[in-house]
């Protein structure tokens, strides 16, 4: 709701949102303990496989190494989160 108001009033993003966004990005690399090249390799392999079956938006594809609470809530576990926008399905594979 507040976000909607801000949108209507055309307000600028608050500095804490900028901080949060920057933190999230920097932590992806801190947490992964792997080189950006490694993530790029994973990314291109994933793209290759998915492209056999559907058309995806390669530019807005987003793969991140992050952390999440485990199911019992007792531990923190690493997670690979991928956001892959699909443009359409392919006929291949039929």
């Amino acid at each position: 709701m507040i976000d909607l108001f801000k949108l209507l009033l055309g307000k600028k993003e608050s500095s804490k949102d900028v901080a949060k966004e920057r933190l999230k990005l920097v932590l992806i690399h801190d947490r992964s303990n792997v080189s950006p090249q490694f993530l790029e390799m994973v990314k291109s392999e994933i793209i290759k496989v998915i492209q056999n079956y559907m058309e995806i938006d390669e530019d807005s594809l987003d793969i991140q190494l992050t952390r999440t609470s485990s199911e019992d809530g007792e531990r923190v576990v690493p997670a690979l989160v991928a956001n892959i926008p699909i443009k359409g399905m392919k006929n291949a594979g039929r």
């Binding site: 500095s15 804490k16 949102d17 901080a19």
Partner: peptide
């Protein structure tokens, strides 16, 4: 006023 990250953040 949105100039400091909150506890939730």
């Amino acid at each position: 006023r949105g100039d400091m990250m909150s506890i939730e953040d």
